[in-house]
Computed example of a mutant assay.
Amino acid sequence: MKRIALFIGSMSVATAGFCGVGQYSDSTVCYIYKQDKLQKKLNCQYDVVEGASMSYAFRQASYTLPGFGKMATSNSANYNDSGDVTGWTTTVNDEPAIIRYRLPTNQRIVSEAYAQSGKEILTCYVSKKSKWEICAEQ
């Protein structure tokens, strides 16, 4: 994946510990679903900002979708001192969402265990409210 811009910095040794932030942009293939039905497969552009510290991690991506406008996804996690996740937030266009996975060949939904196996998958963000879903090859 070609990364146009990469910025890593912001180290803090105070209470938060190490903090890093990265930004990059690229193009890929996006799949747009509405209530589990494929609406469009298209080439899209995306911009990502991600970062982490000892107690917090986040990833925000904004997709430019010709004919659909923009879709923004985000996920963030809070961690306690033991490194356990204490809270998780995922959104699509600021609506509560879930993350799920699909096969890149036929877009069939697969389990998280399959996704963690190292095989190629599409990561998808599904709005709980509007049922819009965006999947991207990355």
Rank of each mutant, 00 (worst) to 15 (best):
L103G: 05
Q45H: 15
Y63M: 02
K2D: 03
S62E: 10
T90A: 15
G118Y: 08
Y79E: 03
E120T: 09
I8W: 07
G51N: 05
S25C: 10
A97M: 01
P104E: 03
Q60T: 13
I99V: 15
A113D: 11
G69L: 09
D47V: 12
G83Y: 00
T89E: 13
Y125M: 01
M11L: 13
G67R: 10
L38V: 11
W88H: 13
Y56P: 10
W88A: 10
Y125H: 06
Q107H: 08
S76M: 11
L122Q: 00
A115G: 04
S27G: 09
Y46G: 10
A77I: 09
G83K: 01
I8S: 14
C30P: 05
G83A: 06
N75R: 13
M1A: 10
D26G: 12
M54Y: 09
E95G: 04
A14L: 12
Q23H: 12
A113W: 05
G17V: 02
S76Q: 15
I4V: 11
L103Y: 04
V29L: 13
G9K: 12
R3S: 07
I98F: 04
I121H: 08
P96E: 12
Y63H: 09
G22H: 10
R59T: 15
V110E: 02
Y125R: 00
S12N: 12
Y46T: 07
N43W: 11
V85P: 02
C30T: 08
E133Q: 07
T73G: 00
Y31I: 09
D81L: 10
K2Q: 04
N43H: 14
R108Y: 00
Y101N: 06
Q45A: 15
V92S: 00
V85N: 01
V21G: 04
Y31M: 12
Q39P: 11
K41Y: 08
A61D: 01
R3D: 07
L38S: 12
Q107V: 06
T105L: 05
G118I: 10
K129I: 11
L122P: 00
A115T: 03
E112G: 15
N93T: 07
I98H: 03
D81P: 03
A77F: 13
Q39K: 14
G51S: 06
Y79K: 04
A14V: 06
Q138T: 05
Y56E: 09
Y56Q: 07
N75K: 10
F18S: 12
C124L: 01
K37H: 11
K131F: 00
Y79N: 02
T28W: 07
S111L: 09
C44Y: 14
S55C: 05
F68P: 02
R59M: 15
S82R: 05
K131W: 01
Y79H: 05
G17Y: 02
F68N: 06
L103H: 04
K119V: 14
K131D: 02
E120N: 06
Q107W: 00
Y24V: 08
S127M: 01
E50K: 08
G51T: 05
D94K: 14
L42T: 15
Q35C: 02
K128A: 11
G17A: 04
S27D: 13
R108G: 00
S25H: 08
D36G: 07
